[in-house]
Write a protein that binds this DNA or RNA. Structure first.
Lengths: 236, 236
DNA sequence: ATGCATTTGTTCGTATGTATG
DNA sequence: GCATACATACGAACAAATGCA
């Protein structure tokens, strides 16, 4: 702290803020003090602070929103999509505690898109599980899982911890991702509420088809992720 | 016109609109007449029209936006991302005519993210090619391609038709996609203008790393697609 | 930035035809 | 015949979101 540090003032200020952000104070998504406050703290002109903030913004470390303030960039959860992708494994790999909330578990009539994906007749009975995924208590995914009416599956979903476990209990020892279709759109009011994002924040949507070892479709999933908190990474 | 047609009014109206949309009038993304106008045209109450529109929306044929109107669903270009994905092949597979507009071709200093991806020092000279991709004259992609400073590449990009051809001319016979990171965000003013979308329409963003047969990085791409006109499909 | 016109969303109420038992 | 339930259709009014000048 006592080192005078060389170079221009704005670089010294940028370095100081960079170190504080790296140390987690302020934490991701938090607002930085106003430019005037920073200018007072560092005993420089507001222009000098702006130069420092501009540099941090160019690095992607902060985001400057006109009329609103400067915010520490949110840390991104990279969801690496391989043949098998499990929610809890993903979250744990980012050193966060996964948890979930089941919003709905029901037997419903298959809509056209669902029926097509599962290879069933339109209107056929399918099992729907809607789930909110959390990492350290913060919502990171909202997923509708559709399953064919396997005997015992609905009961297993009610009791088992996680979907893989429930499928295993219903006789599906293993399954893998066949294809994923990714899109983006603005959230419905309900989705924004559940994921705790403003309605102007886009969602990343992913449509998955999972098949068992024999190639039978065992799940059709419709996942919604809050951007930019989540990005999907594909590695062939 | 003299056939009275059986069944409830709202089904008759839904069928009429369905046929018109299927015939391409109104075309995808176009606005339907307001509910009041349709009510007048079919000589029914607005509620009856609403029931018909609700059915079409449930089928995914139209999208109803409160305060704004009902719109014919846009046709989606599925971009299947495999090991190799070429713009023109993709567009042609959808029976559309691909074209492109080079917005910028330059030698620039590598920003941190670019330098990291290409394995170069920050600030090193890289070749930047910015390109707007069109299908049947409508913008479907906006991509910034960064290349390492291969001898002859910049000249080849200036003359060759397409990127694969230019890379081939510079000695890269073949290349493949190593990884893709997908995100979503709202467009900048410039992006919205170029892609001809409103600023409230999200972009699908994809960050690609392409490597040659020996595993050397030959391109780092930053693609932006207008959603929901484009969706990305991944098949492992 | 503000107000205004347009458009969809929601909720009352009323009436009618049809199938059911 | 009668009572009931349900889907359909029309009417009116207001709420809420949007787009535009």
């Amino acid at each position: 702290m006592s080192a005078p540090a060389p170079g221009p003032h704005w670089q010294r200020i940028a370095a100081a803020l960079r170190a504080e952000i790296a140390a987690g104070l302020p934490p991701p998504a938090a607002r930085l003090p106003a430019e005037a406050a920073l200018a007072a703290r560092f005993a420089v002109h507001r222009h000098t602070v702006r130069q420092a903030l501009g540099a941090l913004a160019a690095e992607g470390l902060i985001e400057i929103r006109r009329g609103s303030g400067s915010f520490v960039a949110e840390d991104v959860l990279d969801y690496v999509i391989g043949r098998r992708a499990r929610f809890s494994e993903w979250v744990r790999r980012h050193n966060r505690e996964p948890s979930g909330r089941v919003l709905r578990r029901d037997e419903v009539a298959a809509e056209p898109a669902v029926a097509r994906a599962l290879g069933l007749a339109e209107g056929a009975k399918v099992i729907l599980l809607e789930r909110l995924g959390l990492a350290d208590g913060r919502p990171v995914s909202l997923t509708a899982h559709y399953f064919p009416p396997l005997p015992g599956l609905e009961a297993a979903l009610a009791t088992a911890e996680g979907i893989s476990a429930a499928l295993a209990a219903a006789g599906i020892a293993d399954y893998r991702r066949l294809s994923t279709r990714v899109g983006a759109r603005l959230p419905l009011a309900e989705e924004a509420r559940l994921l705790r994002i403003p309605r102007t924040r886009p969602l990343l949507t992913a449509e998955n088809v999972n098949v068992d070892a024999a190639g039978r479709v065992v799940e059709y999933g419709l996942a919604r992720y809050p951007s930019p908190r989540v990005q999907l990474v594909f590695e062939p």
